[in-house]
């Protein structure tokens, strides 16, 4: 579906904001890593007796949940599809 809109209209200086098949494969891998890491840190926190360690592991569980949301957002095509047409080159 993207082939028509991205061929030879202008020379692109970097890849457009489109998920490749490889991106998608990495994203689904990474999502499952983060899901497991978040669950694992939470589970380990519940087993710990030292409050400092428990707190650190809970923080890390929270971090992996945040990462999960960042990755999930990259898979949210309804948001990104609109940005393709307005692609202006380099954006942070």
């Amino acid at each position: 579906m993207y082939r028509g809109s991205y061929t030879q209209q202008y020379r692109m200086n970097q890849p457009p904001r489109v998920l490749s098949t490889k991106d998608c494969a990495y994203l689904t891998d990474a999502l499952s890593w983060e899901l497991l890491a978040a669950k694992k840190a939470y589970s380990l926190a519940s087993q710990c007796s030292d409050q400092q360690i428990k707190h650190q592991l809970e923080q890390i569980s929270q971090l992996h949940q945040t990462h999960y949301d960042i990755l999930l957002n990259q898979l949210n095509t309804t948001e990104h599809d609109h940005e393709h047409s307005g692609y202006q080159g380099y954006r942070q």
Partner: peptide, 26 residues
């Protein structure tokens, strides 16, 4: 517990390093 989680984080940095290098758009 800490050793297990540290091993997990180390493993994740390896995975994300490859992902960052292979990602297509900025």
């Amino acid at each position: 517990c800490l050793n297990d989680m540290l091993a997990t984080e180390k493993w994740l940095t390896d995975g994300f390093n490859v992902f960052a290098r292979e990602a297509s758009h900025q």
